[in-house]
């Protein structure tokens, strides 16, 4: 799993992500994220990296739910 900066235009990507969620209900946002996760997982295509990312995402959850 690569956790060093790898996105060429981080601010541009984040803006596009926020833009994609704009005006969506909570449920529609969740659906969008889920489709995005699956598409990105297929780009990665490496089982060990996918599982490491899954683990890292779980680990990064804030201690107390906000």
């Amino acid at each position: 799993m690569n956790t060093e900066p790898n996105i060429p235009d981080p601010d541009g990507f984040y803006a596009a992500l926020v833009q994609a969620h704009e005006g969506l209900s909570e449920a529609a946002s969740a659906d969008l994220n889920a489709r995005l996760v699956l598409l990105l997982a297929n780009q990665c295509g490496q089982q060990a990296v996918l599982l490491a990312c899954l683990h890292a995402a779980q680990e990064a959850a804030p201690a107390t739910p906000t």
Partner: peptide, 10 residues
């Protein structure tokens, strides 16, 4: 359900 909807949509 959300994940499955995503799979089916894609």
């Amino acid at each position: 359900h959300t994940l499955r909807r995503a799979v089916l949509a894609l």
